[in-house]
Amino acid sequence: MIINRKEMARAKLEKLKNGYSAFAETQEVAEFIEKELEKLDLPVHIDRTEHGCWFIPEQSKS
């Protein structure tokens, strides 16, 4: 089975846009998500671990 990493990253971006956390298992997926987040100007906390990166949407302080 071939896994398309860009499609995987896009699915994780959709989760983030909807307010859910996402986990990137590989550096390649994490870098793609980070680049796309910069374009979207979406405030997200990134927690890097030895097993991957957690992307956690930041709540607006209203």
Rank of each mutant, 00 (worst) to 15 (best):
R5A: 11
F32W: 10
K35N: 07
G19M: 09
R48L: 09
E25C: 03
E7A: 09
E58R: 14
L13K: 02
K12Y: 05
M1D: 15
I46N: 04
T26C: 02
H45W: 07
E28W: 03
T26G: 01
R48D: 09
R5H: 12
I3R: 08
E58S: 15
F32T: 04
A30T: 00
T49C: 01
K17A: 12
A24M: 04
R10N: 12
E7W: 04
K39L: 15
Q59W: 15
R48N: 06
H51I: 13
I2C: 11
V44A: 08
A30I: 01
R10S: 08
R10M: 11
F55W: 04
S21M: 15
K12F: 03
I33H: 02
E31Q: 12
C53T: 09
E50D: 11
W54C: 15
F55G: 12
I56D: 03
I3T: 14
I33C: 02
A11D: 03
M8C: 08
A24S: 03
K6I: 10
E38V: 03
N18Q: 11
P57W: 05
R10A: 10
K15D: 06
F23A: 05
I33K: 00
S62V: 03
I2Y: 13
Y20C: 13
E36K: 09
M1L: 13
D41P: 07
K17M: 12
N4V: 09
I33E: 01
R48H: 04
L13T: 02
I2E: 12
R48G: 06
V29G: 02
F32C: 03
K39C: 11
I56N: 09
L16K: 00
L16C: 10
E14K: 06
I33P: 02
A11Q: 08
A9F: 06
G19F: 00
E25A: 05
E34C: 07
K39F: 05
A24K: 00
G52R: 01
H51S: 08
K12G: 06
L42W: 03
I2A: 10
K17T: 07
D41M: 10
N4D: 14
I56S: 08
R48P: 07
E25R: 04
T49D: 00
R10H: 09
L40I: 11
L13Q: 02
Q59C: 13
E28Q: 05
D47G: 12
S62P: 14
V29Y: 00
E38F: 02
R5N: 13
P43T: 01
L40S: 04
E50R: 07
P57H: 11
E31P: 04
E28I: 11
F23I: 08
K6C: 09
K35W: 04
S62E: 15
E31N: 05
L37A: 08
H51E: 13
T26K: 01
I56Q: 09
A9Q: 11
